[in-house]
């Protein structure tokens, strides 16, 4: 955890202010997540010239454009693929992917698991609002059971992905989750992810108030963001009271971490070693 004070972080230094107000709905958690990300980048002193934000399609995909850096808003589900190419071609850049639950886990699910497996030095930020917001509120792989969406008019009956478990199982070397309400914690998680050498996956519980919240009667923006607290119940809080007070069981913080060779470095070292042997053998 960082205890650095905030005062030297001026977020507008990092924003394309002429694009504001942004297009996101009132109360949308994505803006909060974006702030935390930029805060972490600021604390790490990462130059905006050396940063590349790659985002997919959906509300999450639109967030990158507001950051004054190298931004790429690519095809649906593919930001990890684009980012893989970009990072391999340009190891000098800090490449961060911003994606959504649908973008990342549904259409982009294949890319996610392989990105996790490879362990290329990318940071993947998945803004999980449990819904396809941009297209008007369809069910997503993370939509909780019994929630109403435009394509689950009788409530969602499908099993739900736990994105972090998925990423960890696929081999992501740093996996974490946080809620937008805990902005400083989210910032710290981003810091850890950005500092991590290898593929880091951060799931952000971000509220879609206008579409998902409204459809499911989850309350106004404030209530939704406060309810995030109810959705996280790290094991450590268990049995604190005589009966559980949080219905959810999402763990937060860094949930998995392993130190594996980073793909890009390993690739270069591996090749250098093999080529050296080949040349030697040739002689």
């Amino acid at each position: 955890m960082s205890s650095a004070e905030h005062s030297d972080f001026e977020i507008r230094d990092y924003l394309r202010t002429d694009l504001f107000p942004h297009f996101m709905c009132p109360g949308c958690g994505h803006g909060i997540a974006l702030r935390a990300l930029l805060w972490a980048l600021h604390e790490l002193g990462i130059s905006m010239d050396k940063l590349a934000l790659v985002s997919g399609i959906g509300c999450s995909g639109r967030t990158a454009a507001y950051v004054d850096t190298n931004t790429m808003h690519v095809t649906h589900g593919r930001p990890l693929a684009f980012a893989t190419g970009l990072k391999l071609a340009r190891p000098d850049l800090e490449v961060v992917v911003i994606t959504g639950d649908g973008d990342c886990l549904a259409i982009g699910g294949n890319h996610l698991i392989h990105a996790c497996r490879r362990n290329l030095d990318l940071t993947c930020v998945m803004l999980n609002n449990e819904v396809y917001g941009m297209t008007g509120g369809q069910v997503s792989p993370t939509t909780s059971n019994d929630r109403f969406t435009t394509t689950t008019p009788l409530g969602n009956h499908e099993p739900v992905f736990d994105a972090c478990e998925l990423a960890a199982a696929a081999g992501a070397s740093l996996v974490g989750r946080e809620i937008t309400l805990q902005t400083p914690s989210l910032k710290d998680l981003f810091r850890a992810a950005l500092s991590h050498r290898g593929f880091s996956f951060v799931e952000v519980i971000s509220d879609c108030t206008e579409i998902f919240g409204r459809k499911n009667d989850l309350g106004n923006s404030t209530e939704m963001i406060l309810k995030q607290k109810s959705a996280i119940r790290p094991e450590s809080y268990g049995n604190v009271v005589d009966q559980p007070f949080r219905p959810g069981n999402w763990s937060t913080g860094i949930l998995a971490r392993n130190e594996r060779p980073e793909y890009g470095t390993n690739y270069r070292e591996h090749i250098a070693a093999k080529l050296a042997v080949a040349v030697k053998g040739h002689r």
Binding site: M1, E178, L181, Q182, T183, P184, S185, K229, S230, P234, E235, S236, Y237, V240, F245, T252, G253
Partner: peptide, 14 residues
């Protein structure tokens, strides 16, 4: 714990 926006309040035992 529930109102802390920094998630910095934790049980002693844990």
């Amino acid at each position: 714990v529930q109102v802390c926006p920094s998630d910095c309040i934790r049980p002693v035992v844990a």
